[in-house]
Amino acid sequence: MDLSPDQWIFWQSGPIKLNATIAFTWGLMALLTIGSMLVTRRLSTGLTRSRWQNTLEIVVLTLVEQIGNVGLPGPRKYLDFLGTLFLFIAAAALATILPGYQPPTGSLSTTAALALCVLVAVPLFGIEEKGWRGYLRTYIEPTVIMLPFNLISEASRTMALAIRLFGNMMSGAMILGILLSITPFVFPIVMTLLGLLTGMVQAYIFTILAAVYIAAATRNRARKPEPEPAA
């Protein structure tokens, strides 16, 4: 049994390879993009609109509202990054109801890539908001002594992001696989439902944590240590 979809390789040429993680990611990308295109091709600005447009509007507005609730001023600016994080992770989790599918977020490579993106995005947003000097000064606050600890904090929380998501998604797929071999009927369905719920919760947590990190980096006052939520 594969621990990660990375090991399900379709094609390989030297270091370049096409594994299940990348393939399913492409599938999800295609699904999200084509679905969005189909709905947004005919958008109504009037008072009546299609139910699909209505659904997407609810999704997008909820995302904007959640980002705003975290404390980010001008939430639409961060919608592209944070919204895509949520939608991708949520779609990856919801697609587990399809037989033969393995969520790409169940691969530590994927979660690490997402965490790295957050790791890079946080300073970028912070620098954009406060400038180089303003952002870098946050690492030596309240004193210079705190610099190594701040750096460690950056690295560890990125690792935590990656491993939390990987662990939850991988465990869901693993439990499902094990249960399928033990009790092939009914019980795996219950676990699948639980897996869907877990996946949504994880997507939410990942996105909110990224938003909190960005908020902390872009906040103008002295940075306060954010409590690390237990996953």
């Binding site: 993680t21 990611t25 990308m29 993009t33 991708f88 530590l108 994927t110 890539a113």
Partner: peptide, 17 residues
């Protein structure tokens, strides 16, 4: 557990997405 090529590819995929 971590395949660095896949990590890079997924990061690129994410940015494209």
């Amino acid at each position: 557990l971590i395949d660095w090529f896949t990590v890079g590819a997924q990061a690129v995929n994410f940015l494209i997405l």
